[in-house]
Design a protein around this nucleic acid. Structure first.
Lengths: 230, 230
DNA sequence: TTTCCATCGATTGTGCACAAAATGGCTTAA
DNA sequence: TTAAGCCATTTTGTGCACAATCGATGGAAA
């Protein structure tokens, strides 16, 4: 079991929101689960801490983060700022081919929504933002955006939106229209208000059940990562 | 000597551009210099690598980064995107007190420029961007912006701008005016063109001299960090 | 009964020793 | 003379054992 694999498994586990907040990630326990030395786990844990996916407290250990309302707001505000910049940039640099590509994506979203394929729609919905970041062609921006979008995904897992996720599709389309028209100001506004709405739709949910054990969850993701690396 | 101190010393050394590109940072050598165990150096080195301040190659060691022209462009493009978003945000949220604070800063820059205090002006110039990021009140954005501005500082040390650093002050003032007027579109444009101009002004310089030894440089910064922590 | 202190248990941090890998020099052959 | 391959040295990676630190539990005193 390689170090990167362990990192990937734990990342997905956290990002999928499968771990209750404040779950302790003991070094010895994880070392046993993965069947590797404690030092390797240590390294991964510190790396995750640096990526802000977990919280590492000196002499106390590593814990999953329980996002409070304030932190949620900070993350969404950061996304509004960063992705507004992305939208402003793209409005002036997108090529015709890239616009076509984006249009196809938005239509895929609409299609998934029509057929009621909620899982697909959720995936496409997050991918829309990833794709916008990728279209800047800038690896730094791409990394920063990916990090924030991922953390949002984690939040959505904690605070499930109650009813109308459906609204999002029209908002994406509005962003797309502004971008394809090359209207920078409108694109920025569309992006900003879209993210504000997504945040608003989040509603606190009763704290997740701690049903599955850490061991079983890791086994599940281990198979996924090692079997078919996406 | 604490771990954070070592990290801070090496950070400043790198950010100040005192180390030639591709300088090897050997673990054993640094351990001797700082008088600590190799493991502590290891940790710091990996942390610096994660912060992209150095490049850590598996089984090869850590090296300072020799920024090529393409990387410079990527960093400045990222700054344009991110700081455009920041400008757009601030244009709509700045309070009167914050505007006054900004005005004072810009005037300090102008003053430093008038008196020919180039070092002070350079510091204030970078601080202007840090301050804008801080004014968002968003720790995530602040961290991302600080990282990019720091990397730019490092670039400026490598590729010294030949003549007119002086131009920058008017550009900052233009940004300030747009922000204080609450004109989002103009603020974004001012920020974007300012950063584009800064990039343009950079000119490749003959590779820096390797004059001072690593040991003497570290001693210099060690005194600074431990004596008067800024 | 409550609060404070001390000791114990568990968990993380650190240094050391060994293993693995890569680079550079040296030898040899074409 | 040059190039290719091998060996030695240097440097990084890893596992293990011990030290330090933190939290909790239990007992004693007010």
């Amino acid at each position: 079991m390689h170090e990167d694999d362990i990192h990937l498994i734990l990342s997905r586990l956290i990002l999928a929101g499968r771990l209750p907040g404040r779950t302790k990630l003991g070094e010895h326990r994880l070392a046993d689960i993965f069947g590797v030395s404690r030092e390797r786990i240590r390294k991964v844990l510190h790396r995750l801490g640096h990526e802000r996916l977990i919280e590492v407290v000196k002499n106390r250990g590593a814990f999953t983060i329980a996002p409070d309302l304030n932190e949620i707001h900070v993350i969404f505000e950061a996304r509004r700022i960063l992705e507004s910049g992305i939208a402003a940039h793209l409005a002036e640099t997108l090529t015709a081919a890239e616009i076509d590509q984006l249009r196809e994506h938005v239509e895929s979203e609409a299609e998934a929504l029509r057929t009621g394929d909620r899982d697909t729609w959720l995936r496409l919905s997050a991918e829309f933002h990833h794709r916008l970041a990728a279209l800047t062609g800038n690896p730094i921006i791409q990394r920063q955006a990916r990090e924030l979008v991922s953390r949002t995904t984690m939040l959505v897992a904690f605070y499930e939106n109650s009813h109308g996720s459906q609204c999002g599709c029209d908002e994406h389309r509005a962003i797309f229209r502004a971008l394809s028209a090359g209207e920078r100001g409108r694109a920025v506004k569309a992006m900003s208000s879209h993210l504000a709405l997504v945040e608003t739709r989040l509603r606190p949910l009763a704290c997740v059940d701690a049903g599955p054990t850490l061991e079983s969850l890791i086994e599940e993701y281990k198979a996924e990562v090692l079997g078919a690396p996406a």
